[in-house]
Design a binder for these strands. Structure first.
Lengths: 189, 189
DNA sequence: TCGATTTGCCTACAGGATTTAGGTAGACGC
DNA sequence: GCGTCTACCTAAATCCTGTAGGCAAATCGA
């Protein structure tokens, strides 16, 4: 019997790849076992259950996404930072649709609090510094930006923007321009 | 043997209720059969498969949502119409989380083209008439509004806005005010 | 009203996913 | 080299989907 060399990390990574290829809801322990040419029950030595697998993939995706965004906004400010953030976000969602879906997986509060989701919120607040907003406007803005970024990525992934001739890229830039203008309008005097 | 009086319509409605109670992914033919105290196989006389059930629930949700929005915007224009549209949308998502999830279910192109999703797009364009946008700005605006509405509803449903003291309602109004200002800024001269 | 047909719900079964219990053999410490 | 640990195994229960074929209630035509 040759050992397959499984580990929670390898399983999580393979699960993330599977998600990108086939969709997050196709990520099952059965499919993963098939991919490693191993019996399903063997995976339970490494993962408590399929819920844990999904949670781990979600955490991986949140980390990766936060890393990409952090790298993109480094050294930028104002509208420049906003665009970099938004583009990094959308690019990740397009390059890794399954992982992006996973990043929206409902985590229990403690797990969420310990996840890279926290960094997302911090980075969003960071780029808003360039807009000079006071509370509670800053919180409102965090929510608005999060809604637009997620909503756009989500609708685009669902194919919602492929019906007309207007390129999605143009709508994206237009939307970000509008957001920038709206935020500048909100700046504290 | 007493007949249960099933029909595609009754099953769809019960499925929608089940979705609101337990989540769209908990909508299974098994659960539905249990609810009607009937064997699972019996449902296949009324529905081709579970995919058809989900599709029908999605179509129902799209219809309901379009009806609510249509009712809300009737007789309104400009910012007034925008707010009515947005509030009807968010209210539906909050009142019927499972149905709202269903409304985002991926439909095949023909089904989507024949669904109430078309009315949604039309109504969005209708409220934008008050902002005097020319193409392709109008298309960009449709996409931006769709992103914000869906993104906000989605993040709110996921509990993303319950961490701080700032009320979600206030952020919502703030966001809509910002959108209104942004759109007015885009008006053709 | 009675017979024929349709149809609504049934049993039986096969396939696949999740999860648990318990066994065996390779890896590793002493 | 021996004992222990652990990675992977078989077996089995439970649940969901989907198909095939059967029986009886509803319905329709004469």
């Amino acid at each position: 019997m040759v050992r397959a060399g499984l580990s929670p990390e390898r399983l999580t990574l393979a699960g993330a790849e599977l998600a990108d290829e086939a969709g997050f809801d196709q990520v099952t322990l059965s499919a993963l076992a098939r991919r490693f040419d191993v019996k399903v029950a063997s995976l339970y030595s490494h993962l408590k259950n399929s819920q844990e697998l999904k949670t781990r993939i979600a955490l991986l995706a949140l980390e990766e996404l936060a890393d990409q965004v952090a790298h993109a906004v480094a050294g930028r400010a104002g509208k420049d930072a906003l665009m970099a953030f938004a583009n990094a976000y959308r690019d990740y969602a397009r390059a890794h649709p399954g992982r992006y879906e996973a990043a929206r997986f409902r985590l229990d509060p403690q797990t969420a609090a310990a996840s890279a989701g926290v960094r997302h919120a911090q980075m969003t607040r960071a780029i808003l510094r360039g807009y000079n907003l006071t509370e509670p406007d800053q919180t409102h803005a965090v929510r608005m930006l999060g809604s637009v970024f997620h909503g756009y990525a989500s609708l685009e992934a669902a194919g919602g923007f492929s019906h007309t001739d207007v390129a999605s890229q143009e709508s994206w830039v237009w939307t970000l321009d509008s957001l920038d203008a709206a935020l500048r309008n909100r700046a504290a005097p």
